[in-house]
Design a protein around this nucleic acid. Structure first.
Lengths: 137, 137
DNA sequence: GATAGGCATTCCAGCAACTGGAAGGTCAAG
DNA sequence: CTTGACCTTCCAGTTGCTGGAATGCCTATC
């Protein structure tokens, strides 16, 4: 199969697929004219990659997951460990964003948003202890 | 003030401060020996930048916020608009991460995590309709 | 056979926001 | 006068692509 069709089926841009080959995640064959020729296994791998990336796994995590996916004698514990670590990362990102959100949302609420220059948001950004006093996480 | 002291006071790495000068966010003076000489206003700006970055504003947003900060005749509405847009972005990131989290956490919970190869996480990554059936956001 | 389009190829550059390291200049202390 | 802690610049690398240029291939139509 040509890269265009693979792109369509996997919902990955052709550019991304070429990139994944570049970094060694897939190794499609080549036809005589130099075009990439993707087999079913390549398609499966790319689909797998697409899903793993959609769950926020890094490329290196994806590489490890792919190796486990291909290793029939893997231990599910190894997969679970990887996934759990990633889950913790996600949770920490959510926490960070939540704190940002709370702080900024407090500032936004306290701003009149009219044509006058007085602005609690700018004040909050320049001085520390103005509004941001309730998170001690 | 030298860059080292500014770094300490603003909690920004010296490298970052140099970078901010590079991209025109601050413009410290120079002493005869070529060292950067930061004034109080530079310090204020850098502190402001540190806070804005900590709230997740992009560098370009920071540039705009800084301009508003310096503009005594700004309209607070302009600040509020910027902040609100950013708030929406944060919310969308949280949503995305939350979905990732829910999906992955479901997968992780269903995995035994022992020395056997059978693994619902890998199954979930390779086939779609296995476990991931309850989000329709 | 010429040509036009829609594919495919490679390679190079750039995004954000730094970070690390090399090679070198400056300054204060001992 | 040397040591060590600063400071300087510049270049390269990080992550995960993405855009674009220059070029080649394939198929269809005139």
């Amino acid at each position: 199969m040509n890269i265009g069709q693979v792109a369509e089926r996997t919902n990955l841009p052709a550019k991304t697929i070429r990139y994944y080959e570049d970094i060694g995640l897939v190794k499609p064959m080549r036809t005589e004219n130099g075009y990439r020729a993707f087999r079913d296994t390549d398609l499966h791998k790319l689909t797998f990659l697409g899903r793993a990336r959609a769950l926020g796994f890094s490329i290196e995590d994806c590489r490890a997951l792919l190796a486990l996916y291909e290793d029939q004698s893997r231990a599910s514990a190894d997969v679970k460990r990887l996934a759990t670590e990633h889950l913790v990362e996600i949770e920490s990102k959510i926490t960070t964003l939540q704190i940002m959100h709370d702080t900024l949302s407090t500032l936004v609420k306290s701003c009149a948003g009219d044509d006058r220059p007085d602005c609690p948001i700018l004040k909050g950004l320049s001085s520390k202890e103005e509004i941001h006093r309730k998170n001690n996480d």
